[in-house]
Design a protein around this nucleic acid. Structure first.
Lengths: 259, 259
DNA sequence: CGCGCTAAAATGTTCGGACAATTAGATTTT
DNA sequence: AAAATCTAATTGTCCGAACATTTTAGCGCG
């Protein structure tokens, strides 16, 4: 590991920053630097490996890219994970790809009200009990009339203004993002099965008690606060939800050099 | 963009390397640097932005991390993609995190047979009609006896040997990977709702017709071929499936600092 | 004309130094 | 005891310089 300075490396030998990264990785794997602890500071590493700050930082950057550590100015370098790598990645280029709603379907609003979160709703919306929400409900249907699902949308009251613009085929989160400048940071999706109770069944034209697939999507915006939650109930027959994970943490190998 | 050297930035102002990256990104988006072309060399960029090589490289590295460009020693920096980014990413460190099966539950095998894919099964397994598969079925239950789900597992016949080792709490894909050296390349998950038919309902101790949540997981191994498909049917009451997407191209936010 | 060699160009690796911004913890003040 | 302040530690940003390694392109020669 020692190598005084700028000496020529043997052919095929790994560069210094790689060796440092390997050594740190070994230390993390063997428990010298347990998950949750802080790695030695950059200054310490410089001394330990008789290297320069740039080289040490290159090694740390490598570990960070791998998702092994997380660095933060003023605090240090935290060990996140002992084993080498994230194994599977799912990637979508826009929230729309999480919907898979047919393009020619539209939401028809039949009810709009302000509700106060009871304990059940508070759990669903991940908010304190007693918080007020604007609730919009209605069936989503094809242009032909065939129904897709029943939807309940909960909005922060401050975004109530968008209700007038809802109803087309544009997703609600997009309207909010555009109107209020809210940016989506995180989307949480929960899927569960249920069965239609009579009133909704009538709206969608299915038998009461028909199995249904429910999707609850929570949109977290600036600062991580939940600003929209939508709950959709689909007749089981017509709907399934699919997604795919690929191995590796980089997914940009689909390009080759143009000779 | 000019900023002679080491001057204090205004509060909230973006650092130099960010500005350079933004500028290059704008140039790529507007067609000044079309996809497939080479970006100006580092020396050119240093002159253009009156900056140092380190700073310019930092900007280029950022574009590379985003998957916008690809750099290669001796050739230059190739523009890969015009539009900015993959927007949302879900990441799991191991296929186990896609299961969320309780740890103290185990599969009890009650049936094992060889089946030939009819048209319906061929569609489910994504294979040609008439292909033979090994099928294993049984309920998954807690140690206490409470049932979790009913499971059908389909295996390529060449992996039939693992059936003897199944039944504990270890996932099947893991046993196959270990025994035959098959590596998982891709996992495809499909979720739909259904309801229990009488025989299975009896096994799990629920009423026939109870709503259920079905998860179909397809494991693709070396060369992309499907080598295992598992279909689980859960009573709706006890089960929901949740996952999360984070904005940006880097994730790993599921960790917090240990105060 | 094609082959091999050479030079130029480009990015990779590594050193050294300085100041900025953020955080945690200790100290002081209220 | 709580709040405000200061200090030290730590990573972030940025400059300058040198040599290494790889690729491309051009040149000369047979």
């Amino acid at each position: 590991m020692q190598q005084t300075s700028k000496v020529r490396r043997e052919v095929g030998e790994r560069p210094m920053y790689r060796k440092i990264a390997d050594d740190l990785l070994k230390g993390i794997g063997s428990g010298i630097f347990p998950v949750g602890s802080l790695l030695p500071g950059e200054l310490d590493l410089i001394r330990r490996y008789s290297s320069s700050r740039h080289t040490v930082r290159e090694a740390l950057r490598m570990l960070e890219d791998m998702g092994i550590v997380k660095r933060q100015r003023g605090r240090g370098t935290l060990v996140l994970s002992p084993d080498a790598r994230p194994a599977f990645v799912q990637m979508v280029r826009s929230p729309e790809e999480l919907f898979s709603y047919p393009k020619d379907s539209a939401l028809r609003i039949v009810a709009e009200s302000t509700v106060v979160a009871d304990s059940g709703l508070a759990k669903l919306l991940n908010c304190p009990k007693g918080a007020p929400w604007t609730k919009i409900s209605g069936p989503r249907a094809f242009a032909s009339g065939e129904s897709v699902c029943w939807t309940d949308i909960y909005l922060l009251p401050e975004f109530k203004g968008v209700t007038g613009k809802i109803g087309g085929s544009r997703p609600v989160y997009e309207i909010i993002a555009e109107t209020y400048g809210e940016q989506i940071q995180k989307i949480n999706i929960e899927i569960y099965a249920s069965s239609f109770e009579s009133e909704r069944a009538q709206f969608l034209g299915v038998e009461p008690g028909t199995p249904s697939l429910c999707l609850c999507r929570r949109y977290h915006g600036n600062g991580g606060r939940t600003f929209e939650v939508s709950v959709s109930e689909h007749p089981a027959k017509n709907y399934s939800y699919a997604f795919e994970f690929n191995s590796g943490w980089q997914t940009a190998e689909h390009w080759s050099w143009s000779k």
